[in-house]
């Protein structure tokens, strides 16, 4: 579930408030705030849409988890980078089209 929105990284664009399918965020004073943690469906999509990598989602989908900002720091933005989202597209191509070949090799294994 959603675990962190670091206001010192956030640029206040508010896109997370707009795009969250579960309406987890509210616009606060200057930056969005996590308003409804329990509604989070752990889809990680807010991380894709957050240009500044201010958001961190913990993989536990059943209960909220407290995270240490220093500890998660190297993980910030990794999912967005690997997805090749936005400005990352040139360096991280979307290889999803190789799925067929991977399934075929599993069948042959």
């Amino acid at each position: 579930m959603i675990a962190d929105l670091d206001p010192s990284i956030c640029n206040g664009c508010g896109v997370c408030v707009q795009i969250c399918p579960a309406n987890v965020f509210d616009m606060g004073a200057g930056t969005p705030v996590i308003a409804r943690t329990d509604d989070c469906q752990t889809c990680f999509l807010c991380e894709l849409y957050c240009e500044t990598d201010a958001i961190y989602v913990d993989p536990d989908c059943e209960a909220p988890v407290a995270v240490d900002r220093e500890q998660i720091s190297p993980l910030r933005g990794k999912f967005r980078r690997e997805s090749g989202w936005g400005e990352q597209a040139a360096e991280h191509p979307n290889l999803h089209w190789r799925m067929d070949e991977i399934f075929r090799r599993a069948r042959e294994a």
Partner: peptide, 25 residues
């Protein structure tokens, strides 16, 4: 362990969300 190494290597760019929970744990 039977996932071939070349597939392991491209997995983050094929299914980035599949690898995310493992990375984070």
């Amino acid at each position: 362990d039977r996932v071939p190494q070349d597939i392991q290597a491209i997995m983050p760019h094929v299914q980035p969300n599949f690898v995310a929970p493992f990375d984070r744990r």
